[in-house]
């Protein structure tokens, strides 16, 4: 027990907001990969889904921007940016009891802030929508956006602490990191994609070598993967929780019309860990 799935997927708003804008040959692999991920989610039979998502101004602003914030609530709602992603706003079940237990465990190693009233933007809602996931969600929001985001190696420490805590639980947990890979979001450079960076990152992510990215220089990351490249933080947390597990790439597609190097991947936790 009890991590039964470790997934990561891009959440480019265009996937649902502008589904027909790219060529079908570009968009189809991503939709298919999300369908595949949905089957894997069902097969894993989780009791709860822990979603690691970047912040996009849904909850925090420049007056208060935590590195990590976990939602301790039994009900959330989203998306806050419904017109941007073309997903109707709805409520999402949480699990305050498990979320509190998660904070207490993680806090032994990594400081987290907590929120009892959290709203979800496309970072959480787009994957939930495509996965048609109705199970309770524990959100962990990571600042990849503004101010001084936590160093990449701290996102790794968060993943290690997550795993250590979950392993004490009887509940079955699937971890889903969302965001990335390279993108220049909603800015004049939108459409530029760092394919070389994305492939190198995926290679490390899928082959138990995420450590090679934990001290990637900020300027290099931004030059090669855009401001959106900071969202690899959520993937790093998932890789850390999967503790070196190898993975499968369900799709990688640079989609210019969605302004994103889109990827969907799973890490094989293995039966032994279940």
């Amino acid at each position: 027990m009890s991590l039964v799935g470790a997934f990561a997927a891009s959440h480019a708003p265009g996937i649902t907001g502008r589904p027909s804008l790219p060529r079908v040959s570009e968009s189809e692999p991503i939709f298919r990969a999300y369908e595949d991920l949905r089957s894997r989610l069902e097969a894993a039979r989780p009791d709860v889904l822990v979603v690691i998502s970047p912040e996009h101004w849904a909850n925090f602003f420049l007056d208060n921007m935590p590195s990590f914030c976990i939602g301790i609530g039994d009900e959330f709602s989203g998306p806050t940016d419904e017109k941007f992603v073309n997903i109707p706003r709805r409520s999402v079940r949480g699990n305050a009891r498990l979320a509190r237990a998660l904070v207490e465990g993680i806090a032994e190693d990594v400081d987290l802030s907590t929120s009892q009233e959290m709203a979800f933007d496309h970072g959480v809602m787009l994957p939930l929508h495509l996965l048609r996931a109705e199970l309770p969600v524990i959100p962990i929001i990571v600042n990849c956006l503004a101010g001084i985001p936590a160093p990449l190696h701290r996102c790794h420490a968060l993943g290690v602490a997550l795993r250590r805590t979950m392993d004490r639980w009887p509940e079955r947990v699937v971890l889903l990191g969302t965001g990335g890979l390279s993108h220049w979001p909603a800015m004049p450079e939108s459409g530029q994609i760092g394919v070389d960076f994305d492939r190198r990152f995926l290679d490390a992510f899928l082959n138990g070598r995420i450590e090679s990215f934990l001290h990637y220089p900020k300027e290099k990351l931004e030059a090669e993967a855009g401001p959106g490249g900071h969202e690899i933080r959520t993937w790093i947390t998932v890789a850390a929780a999967a503790a070196g597990a190898r993975g499968s790439l369900l799709a990688y597609q640079p989609v210019q019309a969605w302004s994103t190097g889109c990827a969907v991947a799973v890490l094989e936790i293995g039966e032994a860990a279940r």
């Binding site: 708003p13 265009g14 907001g17 502008r18 804008l21 996009h56 101004w57 940016d81 017109k83 941007f84 956006l145 503004a146 979001p185 909603a186 800015m187 004049p188 939108s190 459409g191 401001p227």
Partner: peptide, 25 residues
């Protein structure tokens, strides 16, 4: 102003994403 404030605002006002990008450029 951060682009992830402007992009969703444009969508809320009914401006298409390509038109929004054209304005930014």
């Amino acid at each position: 102003v951060h682009s992830l404030l402007l992009g969703p605002l444009a969508a809320t006002l009914g401006l298409s994403f390509p038109d929004y990008l054209a304005i930014l450029r």
